[in-house]
């Protein structure tokens, strides 16, 4: 979102910010409910084979999809929040552009890395 810079109005970004906040709440709740029903806490936490139990949970499409949504919502919400704080702290076109690009790059990296983890866990 940040790389669109001047082309995307601030109100649109903030609307997405509010939407992602609600999204975190909803997808986070679904995630917790699915963890409770799909996997067993005892199995997941067990030292012996616990990791496979966690990975097995990722094979459930609904779980993986909700986790992916949660990842996108959290990444957008967190980095946009950080962007708002940083551009309020200092002003200037150069600073603003640097903040936008750096945070977009970090957020994109986190989403790609997280998506890769979700996909790999489904393939194992």
């Amino acid at each position: 979102m940040f790389f669109l810079g001047d082309y995307l109005r601030e109100s649109r970004i903030m609307l997405l910010h509010y939407f992602s906040g609600v999204g975190i709440l909803v997808s986070g709740a679904i995630h917790l409910v699915l963890v409770f029903f799909v996997g067993s806490y005892e199995e997941n936490l067990s030292f012996d084979g616990g990791i496979f139990s966690v990975i097995a949970v990722y094979r459930n499409f609904a779980f993986a999809f909700t986790l992916e949504l949660l990842l996108i919502f959290v990444a957008f919400h967190a980095f946009n929040g950080l962007r708002v704080i940083l551009i309020e702290l200092y002003q200037g076109k150069k600073w603003e552009m640097s903040v936008n690009w750096v945070l977009t790059a970090i957020a994109a990296f986190l989403v790609i890395y997280g998506t890769r983890t979700v996909l790999l866990a489904r393939l194992i």
């Binding site: 109005r9 601030e10 109100s11 970004i13 903030m14 708002v84 551009i87 309020e88 002003q91 603003e96």
Partner: peptide, 9 residues
């Protein structure tokens, strides 16, 4: 007003 330093702040 709808800019990075506008009403949303």
């Amino acid at each position: 007003i709808d800019t990075a330093h506008g009403i949303a702040r």
